[in-house]
Design a protein around this nucleic acid. Structure first.
Length: 203
DNA sequence: TGCCAGGCCCTCTTTAGGGCCTT
């Protein structure tokens, strides 16, 4: 697989369209089957963190008040990931916040997302749950730190991505797992996944 | 005024509803 950047946001809620903002972001660079570089920062978007979210993430209002401005952090992480393909667990969530926070700078996203949730539902359908924490436990992946902190979640999503590529190589006997193949597989209807992989193997 | 996410995926489906997943 080519080099990719696995990202994760902590936010004040679920929807930037409803006024929610990012409070922390992390990215890990995955190359040659391992994490080779890391970026993490709290970010101050000037908004209040609801008590429920503060309890969920452990990120307090005091912590973000002393953090760098959100736009500065987004410029830094955009520089950090460059043009590498982006990966996230439930990428529809992280891509919304990536685009919304980046729109507050002069930058725009140049690459597509790969979603480890969509891939897990297809490649690990027997897992009891496809939450990140449940998949880490199911696949015996290392717990990288506190759940719902950006760097720990990005590290664990990276481990999961590598586990999924192993699954394709070993169980499905696909010698070359490319980002383009992952983008294709995450869009294949679930009931067609076995047939699609067999076609990839055959041709 | 009152509402308040949204895409994926299954099924007792497609003229729909509800659970899953992210914070």
């Amino acid at each position: 697989m080519e080099v990719v950047a696995v990202i994760d946001f902590e936010t004040t809620g679920l929807s930037p369209a409803q006024g929610d903002r990012a409070t922390e972001v992390a990215a890990v660079i995955v190359a040659d089957g391992q994490v080779v570089d890391r970026y993490q920062s709290l970010m101050n978007a000037g908004v209040s963190i609801p008590p429920f979210i503060e309890a969920l993430t452990g990120i307090s209002n005091a912590m973000v008040r002393s953090a760098p401005p959100a736009a500065q952090v987004m410029r830094e992480i955009a520089n950090f990931v460059g043009d590498y393909p982006l990966v996230a667990h439930n990428a529809s969530f992280d891509s919304k916040f990536w685009d919304a926070e980046l729109a507050r700078t002069t930058r725009t996203r140049r690459q597509d997302f790969v979603c480890s949730l969509l891939l897990s539902r297809r490649l690990l359908p027997q897992a009891p749950s496809h939450k990140l924490g449940a998949l880490v436990e199911y696949a015996n992946l290392p717990v990288a730190g506190r759940y719902h902190r950006a760097l720990a979640d990005a590290e664990m999503a990276a481990s999961l991505l590598l586990r999924l590529t192993d699954e394709l190589r070993e169980r499905h006997q696909l010698p070359h797992v490319s980002v383009e193949l992952l983008r294709k597989l995450q869009r294949v209807p679930k009931h067609q996944i076995e047939r699609c992989i067999a076609r990839e193997r055959g041709g």
